[in-house]
Amino acid sequence: MTALQRDGADCLVRLYNSSPELKSFSLVVDGELEQVSAVELDGWLIGELKVTAGKPEHRSIIALTLQPFGPATVRLHDLSGHNECNR
Rank of each mutant, 00 (worst) to 15 (best):
N17T: 05
G81M: 10
V28C: 10
H77Q: 14
E48W: 09
E40F: 10
C85E: 06
L4M: 05
D7L: 07
Q67S: 08
V74G: 02
S26V: 07
S26D: 10
G70K: 02
R87K: 14
T2I: 15
L33K: 00
L12E: 02
T73I: 05
A72L: 05
V51Q: 01
V51L: 01
S80P: 01
L49G: 06
R59T: 14
S18M: 08
T65N: 12
S37M: 07
C11P: 01
S24E: 04
V36P: 01
Y16E: 12
V13W: 00
R75P: 00
A38S: 13
A38K: 04
S80N: 08
D7Q: 12
G43P: 01
A3H: 10
P56A: 09
L15A: 06
V36W: 00
D78H: 13
E57S: 12
G8I: 03
G8R: 04
L15Y: 06
G54Y: 02
V28D: 12
T2Y: 09
N17H: 08
G8F: 04
A72V: 04
D7H: 05
L66G: 04
I61M: 08
V28G: 06
G8A: 02
L27A: 08
M1A: 15
K55D: 13
L45M: 10
A63I: 08
I62A: 01
S19E: 14
R75T: 00
D42N: 15
G70N: 02
R14N: 14
L41Y: 08
I46E: 08
K50G: 05
F69H: 15
C85F: 09
T73N: 07
G8E: 04
T65W: 11
F25T: 13
L79V: 07
S37G: 04
A53E: 15
G43E: 04
S26Y: 06
L66H: 04
G31R: 06
Q67C: 01
S26Q: 11
T52Y: 12
Q67L: 11
H58A: 13
L22G: 09
L15H: 03
R59M: 12
S60Y: 00
